[in-house]
Design a protein around this nucleic acid. Structure first.
Lengths: 340, 340
DNA sequence: TTGAAAGCGCTAACAC
DNA sequence: GTGTTAGCGCTTTCAA
């Protein structure tokens, strides 16, 4: 038995479909009496509007897609956690897609656009996407990109000031007297824009302090996860002249590095100080706790959803804007040590 | 400019809508020549089928909802990470919903059913849902519930054998010579079914070993997160007779407990051994690493999706089945110590 | 304030 | 193998 339709309700209530629709959507004013009749019929038939039909008639799905590289990366999970309620507040459901860092998958999503898929707009946190890939995306797709990027002005960007944040993080280590500060996470290729911004901040901090940069202390990682951090730290510690501090491009990298450093019998921060990036909860419970750059995730989520809504509802195409959310440095045990 | 429609393509190609539809969906056999004509028209008009319309005509959305309490809980994130590719393989998109542990939200989802929403089936990992809540859910909603539960036979359950797994975890601690083993995470109320199964396993392990259970060592936590684990450990350590081991009902609880234990200057596992549950990646990188019960997440994801598909496509209502995925105990440093 | 009816764009039963 | 056409269930313009 299929569910009751609008028509069934109308018949039972002795009114037209139009009226039922009005009652359901609270649109046009309806007589109190009529409303009651209709509501009774709805209750009796256990009527629930068919969203599929409504979508077709409206030409919109009421869904937004949030696309992240990996769902099990805490930073993205925490971000999603913040985005979903914001979207729901505005009556949107969230379709979560993970690309597994597959550039092709990302590319296809932006190229295909919203037409042909089940969402009205998209918030994308790109990983393997170079700037140029974003340029040839369907311009009719309302799109907000997370993370700082050099924009081409067709869509919005929301992120923090990566260069400045990285500069502060590195400076924090230098201020503590460290002189051999490693940078862990560089990605000197087209899809590694975010990483490159952090490397730039790292360099600037050295300039600020009048210190030379030991290029060999800038190490690459293919991704920003624990295993990468662990491997990078192993390589660094195997050197004859290991670093006395490391600015890691994500908290996961820092946690992987921490794991390996402790495993090697080093003391953190005495022998090597570590600072991460993202402020995921895990870093507040590790031993030692991880110093980090904390982006304002709530602000990022709120802004991203707001911008997207504006793009979806707006009739005229908006110019792309760059929004910078705030961030702050949070020193914890991995740099300043434990209170004694 | 709205996108081209099927009709536009048909007109341009000089065929009927029916034929275009056939070409697009690869249904009925189409002459090579006709296909080419149609494909050319499609390319020229940059035609993309309108999913909304297709959904209405088909009566299905091609989406399944996966509902978890918290997205930023690593266990759920990892599970989702496994579920999404499985769903996609079968042509389904995944709509992720987080309930924030709000029982009302969960209840409404199951009661409302698939009619009136944008998904064809649902995989639910309930938190604040008592057994009875599931009983009065819309029977037309294809539903698979994650986590072990006493089923009422109307839908499928996929989980591991919690009692047995907990028994093994506790036994592991007892085998190591611990005699004051705490259980951290009990929830002795209707919505705490999962927790209660673990407590049962904990008791059984004591019975097996002929040991008495010190009821005061069974401590409750409202949720299974780091903060709860930390608080619980604080309480346990404040006792005059603290435990020498703890079976934690999740890895997060164990990690929170670990944090506090180390903070207090205890040695783990020498002074207190800890074992968790879920085998999240974080536990493989903590210091010390966390022993745990590892559920076969891939199997859970695959089974859940398979069962759901069967329910969605099947015409006759299937009886609910209980599926037990496998699990194994993984001893790590938090119980057996570091290799010296 | 309410009714009648024309779509929204696609699918598929039914003819040819 | 291809065309015709009637829905899918809701929204909404236009009249009344």
């Amino acid at each position: 038995m299929r569910g009751a339709t609008l028509r069934d309700v109308a018949l039972l209530a002795g009114v037209s479909a139009r009226t039922v629709s009005n009652v359901v959507n609270g649109y046009a004013p309806v007589t109190e009496r009529t409303r009651l009749k209709v509501e009774r019929a709805i209750a009796e038939l256990d009527y629930r509007p068919n969203v599929l039909a409504r979508n077709l008639a409206n030409g919109r799905s009421g869904q937004i897609a949030v696309v992240v590289p990996y769902l099990d990366t805490p930073y993205f999970a925490e971000l999603l956690q913040a985005i979903i309620p914001r979207a729901r507040e505005h009556g949107y459901n969230v379709l979560v897609d993970q690309t597994d860092g597959d550039p092709e998958h990302e590319r296809e999503l932006v190229r295909r656009g919203a037409r042909g898929v089940l969402f009205d707009g998209m918030i994308l946190s790109p990983l393997g996407l170079a700037q140029e890939d974003l340029s040839d995306c369907d311009p009719t797709l309302p799109l907000v990109v997370l993370g700082e990027r050099t924009s081409d002005g067709t869509f919005d960007h929301v992120g923090i000031d990566d260069v400045q944040a990285s500069r502060e993080a590195t400076r924090h280590l230098i201020d503590l007297g460290r002189r051999r500060v490693a940078a862990v996470g560089d990605q000197p290729y087209p899809t590694g824009e975010a990483a490159q911004l952090r490397t730039r901040g790292y360099r600037l901090a050295h300039e600020d302090a009048g210190l030379p940069v030991d290029e060999s202390l800038i190490v690459r990682t293919p991704r920003f996860n624990r295993a990468d951090g662990s491997r990078a730290m192993t390589r660094l510690l195997d050197r004859p002249d290991p670093p006395d501090a490391a600015f890691c491009y994500s908290d996961l990298v820092a946690l992987g590095a921490l794991h390996t450093a402790l495993d090697r019998g080093l003391r953190v921060p005495e022998d090597i100080a570590l600072i991460g990036y993202d402020d995921i909860e895990e870093g507040r419970y590790s031993n030692p706790t991880i110093s980090t750059v904390s982006p304002d995730k709530e602000a990022i989520a709120t802004t991203a959803v707001d911008r997207l809504l504006r793009r979806m509802t707006g009739t005229t195409p908006l110019p792309g804007v760059e929004v910078r959310a705030s961030h702050r440095l949070i020193p914890r045990q991995s740099t300043v040590g434990r209170p004694s």
